[in-house]
Write a protein that binds this DNA or RNA. Structure first.
Length: 220
DNA sequence: AGCCAGGCCTGCC
DNA sequence: GGCAGGCATGGC
């Protein structure tokens, strides 16, 4: 399994080259992006992030002191703005209470504790939590999302709907390495979102075609 | 014109 | 513990 997972990574890395994934100027912007991208196309998230910046809201202090309706207007393009505005406020308050008042302050805690703290926040589920832990605070936790499940189910590597099972598959077989985990997850998203395996897979055209064939996955 | 997007919560069973 | 329904906008 370890060899297979690293093989997929190598093939993706050859095709999708990026220095550091999860584009964001600050860890706060990264964390906001994690909220804003919930069930939402990244193109719309970019508009909302730009909206927050234009509105002068790209800091936890600014979010907390802003007019609530104005905050909603700024993030409107990302959809679900009523829920997401509340989640941004909750997240901002949480961040200011961390050591140093920043997301990176989470690194003061053991990974398990930091994960619990984030999951306790209303509006932060497993994917949002792990994204922040990995890309915001540098913990070596593997992020699983809809793309990850779709790709690895499609490859015939793991048939499951459970977040934890996918995460364990990666973390039990690949050494903890935040840099590697971040790259790998980024490659999966780039691959699934831009080229292949969106809804109707055409494995014959993608860099994972050989693996599809080896696993006996039919092209369609 | 629909269908979909880098989820999560609530309320039911 | 699993599963439907709701949340909202913009792109293709």
């Amino acid at each position: 399994m370890q060899e297979l997972l690293l093989d997929v990574h190598r093939r993706l890395a050859e095709r999708y080259i990026h220095l550091k994934w999860w584009p964001a100027d600050t860890d706060f912007e990264m964390a906001c992006g994690a909220i804003l991208t919930q069930n939402t196309n990244w193109r719309n998230v970019e508009k909302a992030i730009a909206g927050m910046k234009d509105g002068g809201l790209m800091s936890p202090e600014a979010v907390l002191s802003a007019d609530y309706e104005f905050l909603k207007e700024c993030i409107r393009p990302s959809g679900y703005f009523n829920q997401k505005a509340e989640r941004l406020v909750i997240l901002s308050r949480f961040i200011l209470d961390l050591p140093g008042g920043t997301i990176s302050g989470l690194a003061e805690y053991p990974a398990e504790r930091a994960r619990e703290m984030l999951l306790d926040l209303k509006g932060v589920g497993e994917e949002t939590c792990d994204s922040i832990l990995l890309y915001g605070a540098g913990f070596p936790v593997f992020v699983v999302d809809a793309y990850t499940m779709r790709v690895f189910t499609r490859l015939g590597i793991l048939e499951s709907k459970k977040y934890g099972e996918y995460q364990r598959m990666f973390m039990d077989n690949i050494e903890p390495d935040a840099e590697l985990y971040g790259m790998y997850h980024g490659e999966i998203v780039e691959h699934a979102a831009t080229v292949c395996l969106k809804r109707s897979p055409k494995c014959g055209e993608c860099v994972l075609a050989e693996i599809c064939e080896r696993k006996g996955v039919a092209e369609s």
